[in-house]
Nucleic acid binder design. Sequence first.
DNA 1: ATGAAAGCGCTAACAC
DNA 2: GTGTTAGCGCTTTCAT
Lengths: 345, 345
Amino acid sequence: MTHKKYNIEELAKKIGVSKTLVSFVLNNKADKYGVSKATQKKVQAAIKKLGFQPSSSARMLRLKKSNLIGLVVADIGNPFFAQIAMQIEQHADKAGYRIIIANTHEDPKKEIDLLNALIHSQGVDGVILTTSLKAPNSLKALMPPRYPLILLDRKLSGIAASTVGIDNFEGSHEMTKHLIAGGAKKIGLLTISPGYISPIKDRVNGYKKALEDAGIKFEPELVQEISFSQIEKDVFEAVNLLYGHKEIDGLFVLNNQIARHCLQTFEKMDIKIPHDILFSSFDDNELFSLYNPSISAVMQPVEKLGELAFEELARLIGEKDSDKKIAHEQVGLKPELIIRNSSKR
Amino acid sequence: MTHKKYNIEELAKKIGVSKTLVSFVLNNKADKYGVSKATQKKVQAAIKKLGFQPSSSARMLRLKKSNLIGLVVADIGNPFFAQIAMQIEQHADKAGYRIIIANTHEDPKKEIDLLNALIHSQGVDGVILTTSLKAPNSLKALMPPRYPLILLDRKLSGIAASTVGIDNFEGSHEMTKHLIAGGAKKIGLLTISPGYISPIKDRVNGYKKALEDAGIKFEPELVQEISFSQIEKDVFEAVNLLYGHKEIDGLFVLNNQIARHCLQTFEKMDIKIPHDILFSSFDDNELFSLYNPSISAVMQPVEKLGELAFEELARLIGEKDSDKKIAHEQVGLKPELIIRNSSKR
DNA sequence: ATGAAAGCGCTAACAC
DNA sequence: GTGTTAGCGCTTTCAT
């Protein structure tokens, strides 16, 4: 292999054919256009020998197809999203797509800017999005009609897009029920900002419903919102308030990052779980299984979520290409309750 | 904002000027070319009003600059790499670069294919690479001369590229010394495949040196290589062998994934650390600080590594643009020993 | 101070 | 079965 970078024209000249032929072979259209086998062989050989790589920017410009997909996530630092991103990359790679990853840090303005750049400037063929938006207007304004978009983890009402996520209401409902069954009568709930995103709302509702089912009165002061940007501080204060002053006997937290800081706080404040309070979290991870006591969690099927998000997007892109109508699916996978030792005595 | 997507020509027509002027304004060259303030204002306003986004493929084709950087990593599932990737994305974003992420799964062939596609087809402006290659030939063959490349975490001799990583020899040397100081006389070492990559070799050497310093004979059977593709099984067997038959009293493992499975195995086999064996790992993470007993580790400065890798790459890209000569730095950051409870009695 | 036009590398309709 | 050529949207030289 040599260092010289050829373009299709030079390559064609070198072989002694026109660039049309090279292009046909390159795009597996040689047979379709009736290129002789001999020529095909010759071209193939040269492509391989010289390691020719067609310029994707030229191709993009010509075809309006980038084979790039945008992955716009609210917090790539959260292992939950990191794992899904991994899965998506893996499936995309198999299908010949490359992933451009972007992190919004839960900032709606940043999200819009990023989407704009990705869709209109980079020309990605589709986007998988974990939105932090409260309202759909700004998103709607920037989306071309029938643009392939998958909403991941978070629904956004007013947007007609396929959504891949779990049934958050049920996961939360089941886990709260479990805590109550274990004897908890006063269960604190730690949510995370922004509180308006759909999974959080659904989880809070699942919690409320479980209380109601059990005839326990819902107390708003037992629900504390942890700010995304200062988790450590907020968790400490919330636990202090809920355990120290409200005397909760159970605590359910809505994400794994919060759970981590709870464990730290428990150690600092010498709170023993499950003895002093029953404890459980959303989003399983390895820490939860190895910690002592092991932590009960509502597990999301991460591999499945990533796979589905990509496959669904690929379908939309395909449909767009062939100009069929786009059907939007709402996928609500079942979460799994992992009951370990932190939530029962 | 409307849905219609304009190109520069339509936009220009709409304003009533030539596309040249629009381009000048777009690229902040209006003053340089003496465009009147009035025209500038007019153009600016229209760009903003219509939300015009120039096509980056057209721009790429024209300028041979993509504002894309490739991040090619051996195992994005490893939190160590995931965290670095995050840092890189963050710094790249600030500098106006987008990241294309690709995972080689420690497969050299895949690595070469991916690099080829990224560099020659996608036209990324530079690459940050965690290589799994044993020899530099195939990489050398595909790299254009003076191409901006940063080697991350792993050196590759024969490649003149800046390398950003830590001093692995020292980290390993210090940790092994610490284990010996704690009373361990027979220290097992769990390495990971591929064993030929530089950090692993350096760490093994650091381990050997510490033994030598202490007058302990190096026993090759105490070093076991865990296969990347079957960590769980290999770890179980290795611990069984080393603890059950070789009667080690200390164990040092060279990556956090191995450590995790060790902890599982310890529980399964009822091995108590630090009582039965002193234990420590490379690569700190949150599990280590919360586990009971807390796990000692050689911590790599992840934020710093990501920042440096990007900044250095940006420098190289800048130098390439201005056609200066490229200077390659070898950055060897200091690792930090985090001594917790697993490694001392 | 502004505009016309060439050309980046590719695909594919069309001509031969 | 093969070659010629227009044009995707942009930047920039050159002319005016």
